[in-house]
């Protein structure tokens, strides 16, 4: 009986997930990447301030109007500045941010491999 229940729940999950509207997923994806200007530590998705609720509606409208994800980011960037995006674009200002960790990774790797003995001795 328990196993049956379990199966029902699993199937339920899978169906639920698949039939979920794509728009809604996109909406929450976008709003998770936006930072709230009212309570500045939270994303629009997590926040329930008036501003955040309205912005969720705006994102929804823009999706229905047919704007793409990037167009919506661009639109909001012109309104509120780059600060509103949680995902900083790779440009002059952010080269160090994006590339320094990778550079450090490469340097670390180089140091390790320099010290490895590849041949069996």
């Amino acid at each position: 009986m328990k196993i049956l229940n379990l199966l029902v729940i699993i199937v339920f999950f899978f169906n639920f997930n698949v039939s979920n509207a794509k728009d809604r997923n996109l909406n929450s994806k976008i709003t998770k990447n936006l930072r709230c200007l009212i309570c500045q530590g939270q994303s629009i998705y997590d926040s329930d301030t008036e501003f955040a609720n309205s912005l969720k509606l705006v994102v929804e409208k823009k999706i229905i109007e047919g704007m793409s994800e990037n167009e919506i980011y661009e639109f909001l960037k012109t309104k509120y500045g780059e600060w509103i995006l949680y995902d900083p674009a790779l440009n002059q200002k952010t080269y160090i941010l994006w590339l320094l960790p990778l550079l450090l990774f490469l340097i670390g790797g180089a140091i390790i491999f320099k010290n490895l003995k590849i041949k069996k001795n």
Binding site: E50, F51, N53, S54, L55, L57, V58, K61, T78, K79, Y80
Partner: peptide
Amino acid sequence: DGTIAIEWG
């Protein structure tokens, strides 16, 4: 619904 205000930034 507050959406016009957002158009204004």
